[in-house]
């Protein structure tokens, strides 16, 4: 108070966690705490973003992420519209640049973009004045998923620093893995990744992550296991021989989970391939926090919408 205003989160957009600091991540997670309280109320609505417009621009199907963002906007009383590839000129070959110009003309305050190509969010952010939230761009980043993972772990463990976090599966194609690697590394966790060599991209060590190809070795003493969804199409691309063998080598089951710490958390960005990457009894067991992740996702996205529409000064009591 009295002195200058301390700005704790000052970005026009959230494109990824690579360029966000640990202090900013912490502040975002702090803001998500009161948001989560709002979700627990019988009347899950505050008037904060009344009159603001949020555009959900989805070039890929995503029931979960889109639903989560929609709910977050609605809880904050923002007006939101959905533009998806099947319903708009996107399907008619309108370029992202043209769509961006249209959105600019609509006067949107926030655009949430899901796109199959890496870098699309950055392209959009450079074209529109609205805040752009990357809801997943190709294999690049999916920062809000990582934020909700961080929130979930912090809520369960109190602190993220010092934890061992293992990410298992198709790292090559996973934007969740990349955002999680940046997020957990910045917050002081030790990050391990594990998958078949054909699904682990080169140069990962330079991010600070440690690479394993053997799941048993990777699991020893970890506090958090994040299992990624394996896509069947990768088999057709010849990246691994088949789901049966994949499950045998990289599926999480009771015996393997016993190698991790006793209180280890099991996470998954969903939707889960039961019996492939996670055995059913683990997915439904006490270690799994997969449903909590979904709830926390709404809280984290509310915090983000609030902060990107101008929230975030430590500026109190001059009201």
């Amino acid at each position: 108070m009295g002195g200058g205003i301390l700005i704790l989160f000052k970005h026009k957009d959230l494109l990824g966690l690579k360029d966000i600091t640990a202090a900013e991540i912490n502040f975002l997670l702090d803001t998500a705490v009161p948001m989560k309280e709002i979700i627990s109320r019988p009347i899950k609505k505050v008037p904060t973003l009344r009159g603001r417009t949020v555009v959900n621009l989805f070039y890929e199907n995503s029931t979960r992420t889109r639903g989560s963002f929609e709910l977050a906007a609605k809880h904050l009383s923002a007006d939101s519209i959905n533009i998806s590839s099947s319903s708009s000129s996107v399907a008619k070959g309108e370029s992202l640049y043209d769509t961006a110009r249209t959105i600019q003309s609509l006067g949107a305050d926030v655009v949430i973009l899901r796109h199959p190509m890496a870098g699309a969010a950055q392209l959009l952010a450079g074209t529109v004045e609205a805040a752009v939230i990357n809801a997943g761009d190709g294999a690049h980043e999916h920062p809000t998923q990582a934020l909700l993972d961080l929130f979930t772990v912090r809520e369960r463990r109190g602190e993220i620093a010092g934890l061992r976090v293992l990410i298992v599966g198709d790292i090559l194609h996973s934007r969740v893995a990349r955002s999680d690697i940046w997020g957990f590394t910045k917050m002081g966790a030790e990050v391990r990744v594990c998958g078949p060599p054909t699904l682990v991209p080169p140069g990962l060590e330079e991010t600070g992550a440690r690479v394993y190809y053997n799941l048993e070795e990777a699991l020893v003493d970890v506090d958090v296991v994040i299992m990624l969804r394996i896509q069947k199409e990768r088999q057709q691309q010849g990246l691994f021989p088949g789901l049966r063998e994949y499950a045998r080598l990289y599926g999480l089951n009771r015996e393997r989970l016993a190698l991790a710490r006793k209180d280890a958390l099991v996470m998954h960005p969903g939707p889960v391939n039961r019996g492939v990457e996670i055995a059913s009894d683990i997915a439904d067991g006490p270690a799994a926090v997969i449903e909590e992740q979904v709830t926390n996702g709404v809280a984290v996205r509310m915090a983000l919408l609030y902060l990107l529409t101008g929230g975030g000064d430590r500026h109190e009591n001059d009201y």
């Binding site: 803001t31 009161p34 709002i38 904060t48 009159g51 975030g312 000064d313 009201y319």
Partner: peptide, 18 residues
Amino acid sequence: LYRDDLSTLSHQPVVRQT
């Protein structure tokens, strides 16, 4: 989150829990 001047402030204040 209930303030009526959020849109007029250049930045919004820190939210704490109710």
